[in-house]
Each structure stands twice: as structure tokens, then as C-alpha cells.
Design a protein around this nucleic acid. Sequence first.
DNA 1: CGGACTAACTACGTTACGTAGTAGAAACTA
DNA 2: TAGTTTCTACTACGTAACGTAGTTAGTCCG
Lengths: 134, 134
Amino acid sequence: MPDGPSSPTRLGDLERVVMETLWAHERGTLTVRAVHNELAADRDIAYTTVLTVLDRLAKKGMVLRERVGRSWEYRAAASRAELTAASMRHTMEDVDSGDRRAALMHFLDGASTDEVADLRAALAEVERRANPDA
Amino acid sequence: MPDGPSSPTRLGDLERVVMETLWAHERGTLTVRAVHNELAADRDIAYTTVLTVLDRLAKKGMVLRERVGRSWEYRAAASRAELTAASMRHTMEDVDSGDRRAALMHFLDGASTDEVADLRAALAEVERRANPDA
DNA sequence: CGGACTAACTACGTTACGTAGTAGAAACTA
DNA sequence: TAGTTTCTACTACGTAACGTAGTTAGTCCG
């Protein structure tokens, strides 16, 4: 029973590579054949391996698929950014609120200037949305 | 070859429980016996299981230990907050800078008011440090 | 010395995952 | 229509991580 990307399933290396391929075509769908073609350019890999991986990803809810004729068209269930965000949030949520502050401090300590800038911008954006009149 | 908590090793369930126990005594060290006593209060678990888990955690660099007499005293190599932060940062780092903004936006979108407040506070604190004169 | 306690080593079952072969259905093609 | 191609579904096998714990062998205390 697929439960969607809300539960942060751990991905293996190949699974991640396949997700990358799907993400590279964010707005389209890909057949197994198409994914295999892309991967085969870089590595020696069997068609059925790609098939199996996509099937497993679908069962985990990481990818969505729909029938087109006799074959399936796959696409990522969540964008890379969404998945990253969900994973970060999940990580943060498993500390209680006392440690959360400390965790966030450490997080920012280790972040680069660019990352902090992006975060500040995102924070401002969220604020603007919450408070459009100010 | 232990490489410290810098490489975010995935923890199993029991491994995490053991880490929790160590974190609960943040400033002290615990023997295998002590950890086992705590765990045994809640579940049926063999002493040697705890021993094995602590040994594996030590090999991963997740815990540090030192000889005291014939036995070992264990403590967490990183606080829970540090580990959480490292994991979040690691997650964030595997998107390129283009997606990072988007990821952070999604992250904040899903965050609670309290979490956003904590983050804002942490950001201000980091800023204050970087710019003590302003 | 003998029991008690500790750590090292070994082991077994499960699950995830990389990897891929084979079977069978469907479609294309000569 | 029969052969070939192309998909999917099912099955399989090896490895690694991990939960779990027994066995073995020192060491210390009385």
C-alpha cells in the first residue's frame, strides 16, 4: 500500500539515480525505456533492472505512473525540492522542542553564507505571504 | 575506520534507542551495564545485544568510549541537536543551489509557527555573532 | 580457587536493494 | 499468420545492515 512521499523512505544509490533522471524531466513523464536509455549512456545496466527499480519506487510512492497503451509512464511523485524539504522537516521533527532551537543553531552554524542568505530570503517570503498588508 | 558523525550514518531503530539513552545522560558516560539496565526496564533485551549495538555504534563513530578498568564507558560523540543539524545540512546539500531556495521554501511552508520562530531566533543569533558591533 | 562480570567473536534471521533472467502477453512486420 | 520485438510481471540471487543473542575467554573479588 503506497503511502506517498510523506513518509521519508530511504533511497538506495540506484534508486536515487533513477529519481534524478525523472527530476531532470520535471514536467514530463518517462517510460522505462526512456529512463533506461539515459542510464545506459553512463553505465552498463539492464533494462529489467531499471524496470524493477521503477516498480519498487512506485510501490514506495516515490513515483507515480499511468498506463499508456500497454506500458507505463513514470514521473516523480514529488519534486526534488519537496522531497528535500520533507526530509529536513522529518529530521527536525524527531527532536523535541527543547533541542530544536539548539539543532537549528548548529544547522545555521554549519551553513554557508549562500545557504543562510537563501534561508533568510525564504523566511522573508513566507512572512510576506502570511502578512501581505504590512 | 571510524569517521565521526560528519558522515551521516543511518541508524537502525535499536541503535537510535541506545543513542537516546546516551543523550539522556548528555554530560556523563554510561557503561554497557547501565545502558542495558535502562533498556531492560522497558523491553526484554539481552546484555550482549546492547553490547553489540554499542560496539557497532562505536565503530561508526557515533559514540566514543574509553577504558575504565576492564570495561568501557560510552558517551554520544555528538549531541542530538548536532546530529540533527548535520543530517539536515547533509540533506540540504544534496540539492544544487538552484533547487535549494525552492527546497527551503517548501521546508518553511511545512514548518509550524513555533519552528519558524525558532528558526528566526537562530538566524538572528547567528547574525549577531557575525556582526557583534551593529 | 571459583563464581561473577566484562568484552570479543561468531552466528542467524530479516529486510532493503542492486542486479538481472525468464515467462507470457501484446504489438509490429514481413 | 508466423516470427520478432517489446513490454510487464514474477522470480531469484548476492551483499550489507541490523536486531538479536550465544559462546568463549579473560579478569576481579572474596
